[in-house]
């Protein structure tokens, strides 16, 4: 077993949630129960996309207490590197796939007197599992959910049923927006804040919380960066003695793995720090896309997170 050990699964159902989102169900191939997990956990799904093996993290949205199947919801991203397109176009019921064990980089702080959850769009998925967990604990919670329109608001009926008046919705097509300052000013001491959604929403929430004097320990966010597509480049792996080409729609980490070099990871989204790699030499520009390295570390150019970052220039040598 290793940190990146996987589970063989069968796609047991594919459900079209709305025009942009599909839900995928997985059961264990051997018929056993899947491991239990905690609300906020994700799995990394392996996709054999032609020549390319992709590994992309998705939040588990099903009940952490239901181990018969795992569910993830994936929004189609027509601009991305192709992971969501592959899932939407190629994955059908009955297919055999491989997923990682669940890991949680967005856990609930169970000491909280109150949990204030803020979701934007597909960022609702970790909160589906978390609200299920919190409901079982009879915890005090409030969910604020911003989406474009009722039609695109995934799982609104389910959330209405489970949360009732504790669910607050905001439809941007109807010019409804969360008033962060108002919301964050009226929370009692001991409240913990969780936000998951598009970057502007996370930034607005964090800016408001910090300027109002919320302590960092009470602020939690899930910020999966995406590895954007970009110009191909070549990396030299010093320890392995290999030279590897990173394709337009491939991440550095995927290219390293494709070359047969094992690299540790948990999130593949620039947040957990596990794949941090030393830069031994470079002539060009490191394109940092992660939320792990500090700004001064990025400026020094001695480390890079190959799961999301890229490179432009003549030569890049990594310690791998």
């Amino acid at each position: 077993m290793s940190i990146n050990a996987g589970i063989d699964v069968i796609v047991s159902d594919v459900v079209e949630v709305n025009s942009l989102i599909k839900r995928f169900h997985f059961k264990r191939a051997d018929g056993q129960q899947l491991p239990a997990f905690s609300g906020g956990a994700h799995v990394v799904i392996e996709m054999e996309d032609g020549e390319q093996r992709r590994r992309t993290p998705y939040s588990l949205m099903s009940s952490p207490f239901d181990t018969t199947d795992y569910q993830v919801s994936i929004r189609r991203d027509d601009e991305g590197r192709g992971g969501s397109l592959y899932m939407h176009r190629e994955v059908t019921t009955g297919m055999a796939m491989k997923i990682s064990y669940p890991a949680n980089l967005f856990p609930l702080d169970l000491r909280a007197r109150r949990h204030l959850l803020i979701a934007g769009g597909i960022g609702i998925t970790p909160f589906l599992a978390q609200t299920d967990q919190l409901n079982r604990l009879s915890a005090d919670l409030e969910l604020h959910y911003g989406v474009r329109s009722p039609e695109l608001g995934a799982y609104l009926p389910e959330l209405n049923a489970s949360l009732g008046h504790r669910l607050h919705t905001y439809y941007s097509d109807e010019k409804q927006f969360i008033d962060y300052d108002e919301l964050l000013t009226r929370q009692p001491v001991g409240t913990h804040l969780y936000v998951c959604g598009p970057s502007p929403m996370i930034d607005a929430t964090l800016n408001s919380a910090r300027s109002l004097g919320w302590p960092e320990a009470h602020i939690h966010f899930e910020h999966f960066a995406k590895s954007p597509p970009g110009e191909p480049f070549v990396i030299e792996l010093a320890n392995s003695g290999l030279s590897v080409e990173v394709g337009r729609e491939q991440s550095m980490l995927e290219a390293i793995e494709a070359a047969g070099v094992d690299a540790p990871y948990l999130c593949r989204g620039g947040a957990c720090g596990q794949c941090e790699t030393k830069v031994l030499e470079y002539d060009g520009e490191l394109l940092h896309e992660d939320h792990w390295l500090e700004d001064d570390e990025k400026a020094r150019g001695q480390k890079i997170m190959p799961c999301v970052s890229r490179f432009r220039g003549k030569r890049l040598v990594l310690e791998r």
Binding site: M1, S2, I3, N4, A5, P35, S100, Y101, P102, A103, P264, L266, G273, Q274
Partner: peptide, 11 residues
């Protein structure tokens, strides 16, 4: 600590 934080169900 860094090692321990990476301990997951599989390892």
């Amino acid at each position: 600590l860094k090692y321990l934080l990476a301990v997951q169900q599989s390892n």
